[in-house]
Design a protein around this nucleic acid. Structure first.
Lengths: 179, 179
DNA sequence: GTGCCATCTTGTCAATGACAAGTTAGGGTG
DNA sequence: CACCCTAACTTGTCATTGACAAGATGGCAC
């Protein structure tokens, strides 16, 4: 049929891309493979995103928005915020994988910059509420520990002994920051 | 000239690859571009490494060995070990970038597995000496915080306020783990 | 000096990203 | 209702790439 005006292609391409990246990483992503999965012509993705970097920019932007949502839902407690960060990374692996690899996308895209700023604000806010101190060093330590744990978990570098529940393990690890 | 028996091609290709990756990330690495930079034919890299994944496997293995060296030089203090970890990531950015991205290489390669085990041992050793406690959770927390800081630093996600000396900033951040 | 074999080359193929140019349909305007 | 105007897609093409096959070269053992 190849009916024109799919109507929803942009959204479908984004979620299909997320699936593909979750399976084999951003490096293996192919626009043409994506188009095939979505049942459209090989040049359709380029129309919506310009090029591959454009697609990944959109994906990263969506990722920062999803992260902001997750952090908001976690409430005010810093420990919960940290666990939510790890939970986001595990649940939205593809987004997370792209977000912190700025060489893959256009890091100066206005929408992306705005979304990134929003999620960063929430992160810093959680730390300030907990410690009351000058948040700089504490925020950096908290962000580092949750980001590091999430990254190591996703890379499969952690020994099996850590278990299979990333959020529970994260809670233990983050706890060490306040002992 | 195109003299056969370059003699040192494997080593040259590895260091050239590290340069290229440091410039534009592992995704942008091209075997043919590499061959061009080294002044050899477009198929020479494949001879030494089989394929792209083979090259990255070799690079990751070399990376784990370099990390082990850096950790050994740091001595017994846990804080110094952590700073050394961050220092390694910054100084050998390309290696670090590849090491924790197992989908890019053959993670079950015997040499790589051995090198990774060696550096892991040094990391755990540093933690055990400092705390004396059951090292699992502490080691994980320490590894997470240094790995997270290094990753965030390299990704450029940190605000300028953190400064331009990653090792000094790392020392402050890691200190928060024992306060 | 002869043969062997690791090292490197040339040649080729399918797949890919990017771009140019064409096609379709749906909504607003007259 | 006819028109067209534009966003949403398509077809076609090109240079580049990774992988592989087959050939060339030269040092080294014997």
């Amino acid at each position: 049929m190849a009916s024109y005006h799919h109507g929803d292609l942009r959204r479908v391409l984004l979620s299909t891309a997320a699936e593909a990246i979750a399976e084999s990483g951003p490096a293996a992503l192919s626009l043409r493979e994506l188009a095939r999965r979505a049942g459209v012509s090989h040049a359709a993705p380029a129309h919506h995103f310009g090029d591959k970097a454009g697609l990944l920019t959109a994906l990263a932007t969506q990722g920062f928005d999803l992260l902001a949502d997750a952090l908001r839902q976690a409430g005010d407690d810093l420990l919960d915020t940290g666990v939510a960060y790890v939970g986001f990374a595990v649940r939205h692996r593809a987004h997370f994988d792209v977000m912190f690899r700025p060489e893959l996308y256009r890091a100066d895209d206005p929408e992306l910059v705005a979304a990134r700023a929003r999620s960063g604000e929430l992160l810093r806010g959680g730390v300030a509420r907990r410690t009351g101190r000058e948040p700089d060093a504490d925020a950096l330590a908290a962000w580092s520990i949750v980001h590091g744990f999430a990254t190591l978990w996703l890379s499969g570098a952690l020994p099996p002994r850590v278990g299979d529940d990333p959020e529970a393990a994260a809670r233990t690890v983050i706890g060490r920051l306040f002992s």
